[in-house]
Amino acid sequence: MSKDKSVPAIRQLCVGMAVSIVIATGAVVSVQNAAAQNRLEEGREEFRQMATVLQHPRCMNCHVRADFPRQGDDRRRHSMNVTRGPADRGAPGLHCSTCHQSSNQAASGVPGAPDWHLAPLRMAWDGLSAGELCRALLDPARGGMKPNQFIPHFQTGLVRWAFSPGAGPHGEMRNAPAVPYERFMALTREWVERGAPCPDQ
């Protein structure tokens, strides 16, 4: 008799434990989902900060949707009728390297960095919101890269130049992006680690 009585009690205990496990598992899953969502949102916020660099005139003047580079913070057309040319390095006879060398020139005020050239037209960023720019950066058809390629690209001399753009011909310092280079690289690393998520807008 006593043996028979204990069966419902054990059954109840088992059911109770099973329910607890389901609830606990559900709680773990929802905590995990929330953590994943946070991770994505943090990644999106990191990209928004990265975009303030990428959308700065120091980058945009050569990531331009036009057949010529731009110059200055007002993004005016490059003087001297400078054109994009067939290989994004100027016209035959007047290449970027006619005036731009591998470093900023103190005597003339002409900016310079290794391999000075325009981004190809498919990598033009004019008019893109942060979200659109993010998706373009990840789209191979638009010159985009795999997430692990961003760090090496951002370490090139031409990208680094944007953070040390030197002085112009009258000694006035060119403006650099508000986010310093080391912070930009840290943001990029964190954004890549979070799966390179893009803001909607």
Binding site: S97, T98, C99, S103, Q105, S108, G109, V110
Partner: peptide, 23 residues
């Protein structure tokens, strides 16, 4: 002296270079 006029143009490895702005 600011790479704007071209009076100082020479060739470096055959390419035109404005020598006032070429270290």
């Amino acid at each position: 002296g600011i790479a704007a006029c071209g009076a100082c143009t020479v060739h470096v490895d055959g390419g035109a270079v404005r020598s006032c702005s070429f270290p």
